[in-house]
């Protein structure tokens, strides 16, 4: 079975220049392949470079060195407006701190990526309502973020990430600010999106148990990948597949 390699990273280096002599290298030559439809988790200590890697994966940032192909497209050739378009169409972000726009209602927040994607107004509202239903937030569509609980905010954020039906969902510690129970609900939504809609999901987490639930886990330490393995029963499946 041929699977589409939706992400290919070769020798990705990210450095910050804090004044010329003080070059600070955060990522040291990351090689990473992700296949379409995979549910991948990235774990690692705080400061190990997980978010830095995710920003590059999400076309929010450019690597200092190395090559990144997103759906076979060499990203170094894409200009800033192109990156905006890629973020808009191919990627859905879910952040630890939700990052909803405080003045806008849940519905408006979900519709926002479609606004920048040029979707007509009526279609935006229709699809936003549909997505809120998917995350079981229909009852709160006209509430502003400060009227929602953390778990509710994160569900709205996931709906927003799905707005333009992106191929990849990037979630940076999405349960980090939630209690175990609401974290569980959020995780279940990711599983559903993965299983029912075949989304490629990359989940950054501190929580080893949650990472175990995904198909594959990558461990970062001080800006390098130190472990890359299949999880639990997926490991078996992968073995069977290769036989």
């Amino acid at each position: 079975m041929m699977r589409n390699k939706i992400i290919e990273m070769r020798g990705i280096v990210k450095s910050y220049y804090l004044g010329t002599p003080n070059e600070l290298e955060i990522l040291h030559g990351i090689d990473l392949d992700v296949y379409e439809g995979e549910f991948l988790s990235i774990i690692g200590a705080s400061g190990s470079g997980k978010s830095t890697l995710m920003n590059i994966l999400g076309a929010l940032d450019r690597p200092t060195k190395g090559h990144y192909y997103l759906d076979h497209l060499p990203m170094e050739n894409v200009r800033d407006d192109g990156l905006s378009q890629i973020r808009n169409k191919k990627i859905g972000f879910v952040f630890q701190t939700f990052n909803l726009i405080p003045r806008s209602t849940a519905l408006k927040n979900v519709a926002l990526p479609m606004l920048y994607g040029g979707v007509p107004r009526s279609e935006r509202s229709r699809r936003a309502a549909e997505l809120l239903q998917l995350v079981e937030m229909s009852g709160r569509s006209h509430h502003r973020p400060n009227e929602l609980s953390g778990g509710q905010k994160q569900r709205v954020a996931i709906a927003r990430a799905m707005a333009n039906n992106p191929a990849i969902i990037l979630a940076d510690e999405p349960t980090g600010a939630l209690d175990t129970h609401t974290g569980r609900l959020v995780m279940d939504i990711f599983h559903r999106l993965h299983q029912e809609q075949g989304k490629t999901i990359i989940l950054i987490t501190h929580n080893a148990e949650l990472a175990e639930e995904t198909e594959r886990t990558i461990r970062l330490r001080d800006g390098s990948i130190v472990d890359n393995r299949m999880n639990g029963h997926y490991q078996l499946e992968a073995c069977n597949e290769s036989v």
């Binding site: 973020r87 169409k89 909803l100």
Partner: peptide, 8 residues
């Protein structure tokens, strides 16, 4: 946030 969501 707007830029992350694809605003040019």
């Amino acid at each position: 946030i707007r830029k992350a969501l694809g605003a040019r």
